[in-house]
Design a protein around this nucleic acid. Structure first.
Ligand SMILES: [Mn+2]
Ligand SMILES: [Mn+2]
Ligand SMILES: [Zn+2]
Ligand SMILES: [Zn+2]
Lengths: 150, 150
DNA sequence: TAGAAAGCTGAAAATGACTTGCAATTGAGA
DNA sequence: TCTCAATTGCAAGTCATTTTCAGCTTTCTA
């Protein structure tokens, strides 16, 4: 249906890999997710739709999706990696509340400028970056007790 | 000997904790380290000096040192956390080569300005941040075509 | 300064995210 | 349809970090 899905199929085939229903299903589920996601959440989402896909397959598919440019790892929290769909996303930073674990995105053109400048001024080749700011979100700084907690 | 060590002792006692030789030894070793370090390296360093301190104690002491402002977690690499002494360090970013794993620090006042601005413009309380840039270091980008993946 | 309660410590077991081995299954070209 | 390498689910394995627990210090008090 989607040009994106078709592109993924071509990407997979071009690499001499097999285009499986599992791989497509995983990509479709990810594309339907607007938020950041981790493997466990994705697994449960698929399971709730009666999918039989295993976590192992998700773990094996994620590197492919990253190499294909479909998703990116965007931050780590509580020992797990979180990802998001790359499409329609510009580089941005993540604020992580150390109390309630809420994550919020923020964009600032100065960040991209800064990173571009740093790359130009160096002999490095920059590929991606993570900017994670840790602190207290508005409600948690109010000394409220959070019920969501980790 | 050091005012820093004495300050740590006060910090520990003020919290109603016990000031043990292990805690002091760990702090001393960390202060003698100029570079970034991880738990394993620190453990082996201590061991090579005939210290009997266990990894468990290191893992238990690190949060205290962070809360006391003596060290900070500065990035994660290969599934491990890396730390550095906070003293005499300004906030900075880390460039991580995805090929050789080399890590290099970089400072840019614009980064701090940006972060300060973002905090002022929000209702968040910022405590720390990690800016990790992933890419290829000068020697690794020299097209030594690698088949070693990544 | 002895004695006891509260904290600590090392060693080992437990955790939890992620990876890997393997036998059965499936995709894709012939 | 046949063939076989790639892929999958499951279970076992890794590995950093956490936790359990019994013995050992630190502190406080009498
Ligand atoms: Mn994001
Ligand atoms: Mn640093
Ligand atoms: Zn919060
Ligand atoms: Zn390199």
């Amino acid at each position: 249906m989607d040009a994106l899905i078709e592109g993924f199929k071509q990407f997979i085939k071009k690499r001499g890999l097999k285009y499986t229903s599992e791989r497509e299903e995983i990509l479709r589920e990810i594309l339907s997710t607007k938020d950041h996601f981790d493997v466990d959440t994705l697994y449960l989402q698929l399971k709730s739709k009666n999918s039989k896909i295993s976590k192992a397959s998700i773990y094996r598919t994620i590197p492919l999706l990253i190499e294909g440019g479909y998703i990116q790892e965007v931050y780590k929290k509580g020992g797990q990696s979180y990802y998001e769909v790359t499409l329609n996303k510009r580089p941005h930073l993540h604020f992580i509340c150390i109390k309630c674990s809420e994550v919020k995105e923020a964009y600032d053109p100065r960040l991209n400028e800064l990173i571009d400048d740093l790359e130009r001024a160096s002999n490095y080749r920059f590929l991606t970056f993570h900017l994670e700011i840790f602190g207290l979100c508005p409600s948690c700084r109010e000394g409220k007790v959070s019920h969501e907690t980790q």
